[in-house]
Design a protein around this nucleic acid. Structure first.
Length: 571
RNA sequence: CGGGGUGUAGCGCAGCCUGGUAGCGCAUCGGCUUUGGGAGCCGAGGGUCGGAGGUUCGAAUCCUCUCGCCCCGACCA
């Protein structure tokens, strides 16, 4: 590719609208341009990278035995009504009406469409297991798109759906997708980690997410220092509540009312009463899926995990506003479980301790030395909090938990028969009876992978692409295209590399050298060859690796072999 | 959807408070010089001041409405 013949609109300044480095660099290096909030055009160089990722995904999906299809982006509302998601999916589903006033949506995912296909076309268990995938543009009307293509509304996704006769077969498909994902992200040259995940609103049994490790990641992932345990914070458990002795109420003085004027937050109360924060109970109010009001108790220094709360209280679960709480329950800032008529759920970390401080349900008053059984009925103890750094691992017992930030680039689910049953998918089993297949679904955010790769592979001057997804393996910098000798050498090298299948961009623009260097740094091709200037006067070219290598002098007749050797080393 | 910010030349911004007919840097075009890390000088072109309405002799500036974009909270590849 010739630089002069391609639209590569690099920009010098940092754009004001970008928050993360990948977004900044994708704009600056001319990979993408925004059309509307969360909607981007991929320019020629950006598209090359996107295609690289896409092809790696395709190769590994094919190798894992999945079959590629391409489903419609626009889907009729009828299918979504069948699965029950037309009403359930909410505003994120972009709804469209056609000229006949029929309702459609722009597909955010394709469970319904694939289920419809399979129920029509697959009759026998002999055709299972089957795994269909596509690489396609999705649209989710995100509440707040941000970070460029990292969280766009329109994005490129690989989604796959497996159909299996039984649980065991689903387990196999799931594992084979899991393994394929590991290969895909390894091939992309990314540092990543698979973690146990919350199944969220999609539902289903087991689920893992694949996270690219990066400071700017929107998710927090928890992992054990000793064993292989790793999970999304939404799902992560710790061993902190296990073991230890229960604290007996008989050693604790009587419960007492204490005046705490104006002390509303846990911090306030801890400072005012001069007590350890571990002795406080935070009382939260939640409304469960049925509309029932519930008290959630947490140790003062712990945070509510809303994903866990959702599992416990049902999908319609919500946290009411302070105004609602004040009206229906009591004084916000002085709430407590003692004497409450609401159902009480307490975090398991409170189970073995005793003698707490909690709100007295009276403005400006707290209770001290509150004990289970003695002062209030022992509630149901559950895990509803976020684990914290340094807690013991629940799985191996020896390690401690650490936290990292991650960008979710892949997600695998065991869906079970939720959709296949709702959509009436059946095949005839070996026993001649109709059977509802088990489904799995497996997604990769292809466009997000590009952004995640940049988050992990850049320096102050621009992108430093891993070879596998670089738009070009080699960039030839022709310093002065008007110099016939230099130009001839560069052109020869360019065609030699092309004929060997080495993807090359030739910067043949009539630009100053500084401009070419800066643009080459931004674009981030792994190898760079300089043709012209001082070195060519001495009859040599300069070879440089993007990743901080010093320039080496190589004679023109040796450059191709040298480049091939370097590329082999980068693979 | 709540809360906040912003919209002026292709890009980044000043001007707005205190109304008087639009400016700076970069980019673009032409010329000369320069040529190992985003050149220098000279000259030129380019703006419905997001849109609509209003106040006023006069509006980028004040008022009302509206739209886009960005940021902070719930969703997700």
């Amino acid at each position: 590719m010739r630089f002069s013949r391609v639209l590569i609109p690099t920009v010098k300044e940092t754009p004001s609208e970008t928050q993360v480095i990948s977004h900044t660099l994708m704009i600056r290096s001319g990979l993408i341009r925004q059309l509307s909030a969360g909607i981007y055009t991929w320019l020629p160089i950006g598209l090359r990278v996107l295609r690289k990722v896409e092809n790696i995904v395709r190769e590994e999906m094919d190798a894992a035995g999945a079959q590629e299809v391409l489903m419609p982006a626009v889907q009729p509302s009828e299918l979504w009504r069948e699965s029950g998601r037309w009403d359930f999916y909410g505003k994120e589903l972009l709804r469209i009406t056609d000229r006949h006033n029929r309702a459609f949506c722009f597909g955010p995912t394709h469970e319904e469409v694939i289920a419809d296909l399979v129920r029509r076309e697959v009759r026998s268990y002999k055709e299972l297991p089957a795994n269909f995938y596509q690489i396609q543009t999705k649209f989710r009307d995100e509440i707040r798109p941000r970070f460029g293509v990292m969280r766009g509304r329109e994005f490129l996704m690989k989604d796959a759906y497996s159909f299996n006769l039984d649980q065991e077969s689903l387990d196999e498909s799931y594992q084979s997708m899991f393994d394929a994902y590991v290969k895909i992200f390894e091939r992309c040259g990314l540092r990543f980690r698979p973690v146990e995940a919350d199944t969220g609103t999609i539902g289903g049994a087991a689920s893992h997410e694949f996270h690219v490790l990066a400071e700017s990641g929107e998710d927090t992932i928890v992992s054990c220092s000793d064993c292989s345990y790793a999970a999304n914070l939404e799902k992560a458990v710790s061993g902190a509540a296990q073991g230890g002795e229960s604290l007996d109420a008989s050693t604790i003085p009587e419960m007492a009312r204490t005046e705490t004027p104006g002390q509303k937050s846990i911090d306030d109360v801890v400072a005012y009463l001069k007590i350890p924060v571990e002795k406080t109970i935070k009382t939260l109010v939640a409304v469960d899926g049925e509309g029932e009001w519930t008290l959630l108790l947490l140790r003062g220094d712990h945070e509510l995990n809303e994903a866990k709360a959702r599992v416990l209280l049902g999908d319609g679960f919500r946290i009411p506003t302070p105004e609602e709480v004040a009206e229906k329950v009591g004084p916000v800032g002085s709430l407590g479980p003692v004497g409450s008529e609401l159902t009480v759920l307490a975090d398991e970390m409170l189970e073995k301790s005793n003698g707490f401080v909690c709100g007295a349900n009276e403005e400006g008053w707290h209770l001290t030395n509150v004990c289970w059984d003695r002062d209030l009925p022992r509630p149901r103890f559950v895990d509803v909090r976020n684990v914290t750094v340094g807690e013991p691992c629940a799985h191996c017992g020896s390690g401690t938990l650490a936290m990292d930030r991650g960008i979710e680039v892949g997600h695998v689910f065991k869906l079970g028969d939720k959709y296949s049953r709702a959509m009436n998918v059946t095949v005839l089993g070996p026993d001649g009876r109709e059977t509802v297949p088990e489904m799995g679904c497996y997604g990769i955010g292809v466009s997000r992978v590009v952004a995640a790769a940049i988050e992990q592979n850049h320096d102050d001057n621009g992108i430093v692409w891993p070879l596998a997804i670089a738009p070009f393996s080699v960039e030839i910098l022709l310093l002065n295209p008007k110099d016939a000798n230099a130009s001839g050498i560069a052109e020869t090298l360019y065609s030699d590399l092309n004929s060997r299948g080495i993807e090359t961009i030739l910067d043949d623009r009539d630009e100053r050298m500084g401009v070419k260097f800066k643009d080459a740094d931004l674009l981030g091709a792994p190898l760079r060859v300089l043709v012209g200037g001082r070195s060519l006067k001495e009859g040599v070219l300069e070879l440089q690796t993007r990743k901080g290598g010093k320039a080496e002098r190589v004679p023109p007749q040796e450059i191709v072999a040298e480049l091939e050797q370097r590329l082999a080393a980068l693979r």
